[in-house]
Design a protein around this nucleic acid. Sequence first.
DNA 1: CTGCAATTTTGCAGTATCTGCACCTTCGGG
DNA 2: CCCGAAGGTGCAGATACTGCAAAATTGCAG
Lengths: 208, 208
Amino acid sequence: MPEPVKGLRERKRLETHRALATTAVRLVAERGLDQVTVEDISAAAGVSPRTFFNYFASKEDAVVIAHADTAERTQRTIDKFLATPAEVSTPRAFVDAMKEDFAQVDENREEWLGRMKAIQENATLHSRAVAMNHDNIAPLIEAIARRTGVDPKADLYPALLLSTLGGAVNAVLMLWYQHDGRVSALDLLDDAVETLLAGLPEPGGRAR
Amino acid sequence: MPEPVKGLRERKRLETHRALATTAVRLVAERGLDQVTVEDISAAAGVSPRTFFNYFASKEDAVVIAHADTAERTQRTIDKFLATPAEVSTPRAFVDAMKEDFAQVDENREEWLGRMKAIQENATLHSRAVAMNHDNIAPLIEAIARRTGVDPKADLYPALLLSTLGGAVNAVLMLWYQHDGRVSALDLLDDAVETLLAGLPEPGGRAR
DNA sequence: CTGCAATTTTGCAGTATCTGCACCTTCGGG
DNA sequence: CCCGAAGGTGCAGATACTGCAAAATTGCAG
């Protein structure tokens, strides 16, 4: 994984984004969304309020969007997904490709605990968070459609796979937060995917 | 289904909500979210802007929340779900219980087409719509936990089932919209659930 | 190391969203 | 017919967000 070295400018931009994002998460987790203004966040991060809006379209986004380069990250996920050998089933391949990104939850535990706290306590944040980044949906569906060889506009499968896996991720994050991040989010995700790919058999064990 | 007759006051309240919601959907589908102000919607629905905010916490909500009595509707779903015979598997029982509410998509086709158009074209609306109504999540998880006899705080299953089914509903609505509502949303939902409960086998037919 | 071009930051002015409060109207029950 | 409860409305004000142009910063070529 070469992690291409960008220019200083680009790096600074990512840093500013991270600074605003982590500051927003911290303040909102402490006080609640409506007790924190954009001015508060900007001041604590050392930029002007106007600059805040150069990075985020809304206050909510600052809490929810952890990194500035979501598009590139999505592209990396897609590349990895499409490069997976054909012996691996499409759902498995997709989950594996997602994991690299998902690992940041365990890696940045404190930040994500704060983010989840904020999200659970506020309906507006919740909806922003649960939804996948709007712009990334289409490419992901496209990639799944390509691998399975179906028409993404006509066939349900690509959107269904993406949406249900997204749902699984949300459930995992919720439970991870309820356990105070004392379990591995990646492990929980494995459990979830196993259950999901088994057709959601109920815990008691009765078949469908 | 007795549909309890409420007083005139209650009925008028529901009507006003519906009027604002359908007006908002229509205007936003026509012009786009940011070309419609709260004042526009209120004027077209014949109430003051201040009254608009007695019904909706935000402009987005007016597009996304079709009915004023979501809590009661959720409760009815839960009742139906818990009253389903034990021979039916939990996922099936849950889907069946949801269907009554989901049928409004086919019944109010024009309105839902407009709503989906608005949602697809705007990231903010998209996130609000994809997320289940924040207050209804906990009761639904609670109900699933009760039926399966697990602890909703410790076991992944209830949240996983709810989230993945929610994802399936989203995928169905997306495809339904792409087909201009010319297929039955309920039928699509059946397809989606079948695939989901089979463990998401890929279209080609290879096993997992 | 210097000047130039590109990019980023910032202030400012203006619009729109959303809330609290007080007042008024309307409905429903006795 | 009257009274209490609930909804509707206007107003004042805080905050969110955008467009624009000036100022500052950075990368690079010479």
